[in-house]
Amino acid sequence: MNTIKHVFFDLDNTLWDFRKNAKFALAELYIKYDVETKHGFSFDEFHPYYHQSNEGLWAQIRDKEITKEELRARRFKQAFDNLGIDDDELAAIFEEEYMETITNYNEVVDGAMELLDYLKPKYSLHIITNGFIEVSKRKIESSILNGYFQTVTYADELKILKPDPRIFSHAIEKSEAKKEESIYIGDDWIADVVGSKKFGMSSIFFDRLNDNFSMDDVPTITHLDEVKNYL
């Protein structure tokens, strides 16, 4: 990979630890609205239902089955309903406050800063994210990730989501890079790896959840430090 000049990253769960920060934010809201006392379910009981709902709905967005507006309308209602809490008002409050609250927490994935410090003197660094633009901007600008990236491509700008090759094409044009001199690193097999490879860009799969997917010419890592073996 000695021809690489540009390194593109996914944001959520590749650099910015969405799962950890989301859990902190939800715990704060759970306490704020005294959910356990009012409904009898602890936060530890609630959280797996939220995780299942959110992950499933984001997969449906990626596969163009629903819109982001539908995700926002459904994720907390679905999580509370499945847990056994019939409270649409509470679900609406959680959705309204969640995206503001989550950016109060800015944990990054283990090894992210060490990797960025290693890469920055050698490569131009960029981000391509499917996340909500207003939230994703705050995630970057209010965290220690700020200042590392020459370009950030937001799916919301284009109304096109990874794995659609057009978002990778737009990011390449925006960064004035060439795809044969670029590589993409992400944790979502379909959105990140399948998408970037379909576009014709090299890719590294960050297999944080031990999904064990594989593809010819796609290295798999389980910790960001392993990127240094390839770049």
Rank of each mutant, 00 (worst) to 15 (best):
K137F: 04
K137T: 07
K137H: 13
R138D: 02
R138N: 04
R138V: 02
K139F: 01
K139Q: 11
I140P: 00
I140V: 14
I140Y: 00
I140K: 00
E141W: 00
E141N: 06
E141P: 00
S142F: 11
S142N: 15
S142R: 12
S143W: 05
S143A: 10
S143V: 07
S143I: 02
I144W: 00
I144C: 08
I144D: 05
L145A: 03
L145K: 00
L145M: 10
L145D: 07
L145Q: 04
L145P: 01
L145F: 06
N146Y: 07
N146K: 11
G147T: 05
G147I: 02
G147Y: 03
G147H: 04
G147R: 08
G147L: 03
Y148C: 07
Y148Q: 08
Y148W: 12
Y148S: 08
F149S: 01
F149P: 01
F149Y: 05
F149H: 04
F149W: 06
Q150Y: 11
T151H: 06
V152Q: 02
V152Y: 01
V152D: 02
V152A: 02
V152M: 09
V152E: 06
T153L: 02
Y154D: 05
Y154E: 05
Y154T: 03
Y154V: 09
Y154Q: 01
A155Y: 01
A155L: 04
A155H: 04
A155K: 04
D156T: 03
E157W: 11
E157C: 09
E157F: 08
L158T: 01
K159T: 09
K159P: 00
K159L: 12
K159F: 07
I160L: 14
I160T: 14
I160W: 09
I160C: 07
L161I: 06
L161E: 10
K162A: 09
K162E: 06
K162C: 06
K162N: 08
P163K: 10
P165M: 13
P165Y: 10
P165S: 11
P165T: 14
I167N: 00
I167L: 10
I167E: 03
I167Y: 06
I167W: 03
I167K: 06
F168G: 05
F168E: 07
F168D: 05
F168H: 06
S169R: 11
H170N: 13
H170W: 12
H170T: 12
H170K: 14
H170L: 06
A171T: 10
A171N: 02
I172F: 05
I172Y: 08
I172E: 04
I172C: 08
E173I: 14
E173A: 15
E173S: 15
E173L: 14
K174L: 15
K174S: 12
K174F: 05
K174A: 10
S175T: 10
S175C: 03
S175G: 05
S175I: 09
E176Q: 15
E176Y: 11
E176H: 15
A177D: 08
K178M: 15
K178D: 14
K178P: 04
K178C: 14
K178S: 15
K179F: 13
K179T: 11
K179R: 14
E180Y: 09
E180S: 14
E181S: 13
E181I: 09
E181L: 06
S182P: 07
